[in-house]
Simulated assay, not measured.
Amino acid sequence: MSIASDRRTRRRQETIGEILDMAIELMDAEGVAALSLSAVARRLGMQPPSLYQYFPSKMAIYDALFQRGSELQRDAYRTALASATTENPLKHNLIAATAFSRWCLDNPVYTQLLFWRTIPGFEPSPEAYAPAQETLEDLRNHLQATADAGYLHPDAASDEGIALFTSLTAGLLSQQMANEPDASFEDGRFVRMLPTVLDMFHQHYAPGG
């Protein structure tokens, strides 16, 4: 690849990043489903038709944001586990769920896009959904390892166990964001119950159960 071609590729990626950043900013101000391509273009000093050189439709922007949000959320989850200073897998559950919850509260627009059906007709592409599947597989592997170590029943890593775990944690976040959207993780009336909810999950899948 020539220097000029490399420069054009880099500039294109920078412009795509600027478009996505502006889309998030506007969605935060006006609502996730209220995104306007012409508003994004105007805020970036572009003519609306120029935006189509980067994204052919509004759904394509949503898809790119879904992928970016899924990658950020996955990386926050993995970073928290990688930096854990305890060997107790049950505490790892809390560390990972706490990192997930903090990220969601810090990124409410991405959270609505990833976990709530706020955009009629939108379905993420397989490529955009892949990082979310990786996060679920990380969770399954961790719960399986926790069960293998004797801390949980093997069913904790089943499809039903994954569904219960994600329902409990996502339910707290939904309640928090709906009722106290500006509260911190420490002060939130609902997310404060995260340790209690995980204890309930651990008791339901106790190794002797």
Rank of each mutant, 00 (worst) to 15 (best):
S2A: 08
I3Q: 15
A4L: 15
R7H: 07
R7L: 05
R10G: 12
R11Y: 04
R12D: 05
I16V: 09
D21K: 05
D28C: 10
A29I: 08
E30C: 12
A33L: 10
L35M: 14
S36I: 02
L37K: 13
R42Q: 03
R42F: 10
M46V: 02
P49M: 14
S57H: 06
A60I: 02
Y62C: 03
Q67W: 07
Q67K: 13
S70E: 08
E71H: 09
Q73C: 07
R74L: 09
D75W: 09
A76V: 03
R78V: 14
S83D: 09
T85S: 14
N88S: 03
P89L: 06
P89Y: 15
L90D: 07
H92E: 09
A96I: 02
S101Y: 01
R102N: 13
R102W: 09
D106N: 15
L113S: 15
L113I: 08
L114R: 03
W116L: 15
W116Y: 13
W116K: 14
W116F: 11
T118S: 08
P124S: 09
P124R: 00
P126A: 13
E127Y: 04
A128I: 08
Y129R: 13
A130R: 15
Q133M: 08
T135K: 15
T146I: 13
D148K: 12
D148Q: 10
Y151I: 02
Y151V: 00
D155C: 02
G161P: 06
A163F: 03
T166A: 06
L168G: 04
L168F: 07
T169P: 07
G171F: 01
L172T: 03
S174E: 06
S174M: 12
Q175A: 00
N179T: 08
A183S: 09
R189K: 00
R189M: 01
R192A: 08
M193E: 09
L194T: 01
T196G: 03
D199M: 06
D199W: 01
D199Q: 14
M200A: 14
M200G: 13
F201C: 07
Q203D: 12
H204Q: 08
Y205I: 07
P207T: 03
G209M: 07
